[in-house]
Amino acid sequence: MLAIDDQEEARDALEAVLSTSGARVRLCAAGTEALDWLRATDPAQWPDVLLCDLMLAGEDGYDVLSRLRALEGGRPSIRGGPLPAIALTGYTDALDEQRARTAGFDAHLHKPVAPAELIAAIRRLAQPPSRTDTALPRS
């Protein structure tokens, strides 16, 4: 799991919820930090899901996802498709959700997100439909 949020308290909360659910979480304060880590990491070791705040200091989550998709285009895909991405935002307008989906996010969750809702979204995106495991993915 890779989580990007510029607010330390939000990162800490995500880490607590996800770690308690059995996930390994890599936290980043900025999209640039996350993308640098992905560039330096073997794609086989990439996380199963990206969680990205849409309003980051000095950048936005839409741009981060666009740069991630460009990075993926130059590397072989281990998972058979693009890295699933969940947009996290304080904005609840339907147009915001539509914009996130159009930008390529697979899900759009409103902050503060209930832990059960977050975990369900991650499971839905990270695991093939045929899997019946109850634990979160380990990466």
Rank of each mutant, 00 (worst) to 15 (best):
M1Q: 01
M1A: 09
L2W: 15
L2G: 01
A10T: 12
A10D: 14
R11H: 03
V17H: 08
L18E: 08
L18M: 09
L18C: 08
S19I: 01
S19Y: 00
T20M: 15
A23H: 00
R26S: 08
L27T: 14
C28S: 10
A29C: 12
A29D: 14
A29E: 15
A30N: 04
T32N: 06
T32C: 01
E33C: 08
E33L: 09
A34R: 00
A34W: 11
L35K: 10
L38K: 08
L38Y: 07
R39Y: 02
A40H: 04
T41K: 05
A44P: 02
A44V: 11
W46A: 04
W46L: 07
P47I: 03
P47K: 04
D48P: 00
D48S: 11
V49W: 05
V49Q: 04
V49K: 07
C52W: 01
D53I: 03
L54R: 10
M55L: 04
E59Q: 10
G61N: 10
G61C: 06
V64A: 05
S66E: 15
R69Y: 09
R69S: 10
A70S: 15
E72V: 10
G73W: 05
G74I: 03
G74T: 15
R75G: 01
R75C: 04
P76M: 07
S77W: 07
G80Q: 05
G81I: 12
G81V: 11
P82Q: 14
P82M: 12
L83A: 06
L83M: 11
P84L: 14
I86V: 12
L88E: 10
L88T: 09
T89Y: 13
T89I: 11
D93T: 10
A94I: 06
A100H: 08
A103H: 12
F105V: 06
F105G: 03
D106R: 05
D106N: 13
H108P: 02
L109M: 06
L109E: 06
K111H: 14
K111V: 13
K111G: 02
P115Q: 05
A116M: 09
L118G: 00
L118T: 00
A120K: 11
A120N: 09
I122R: 13
I122V: 14
R123Q: 11
L125F: 00
A126N: 06
P128M: 02
S130P: 00
S130N: 01
R131C: 04
R131G: 00
R131H: 07
R131D: 11
R131M: 02
R131S: 11
T132Q: 12
T132N: 05
T134L: 10
A135T: 14
S139G: 10
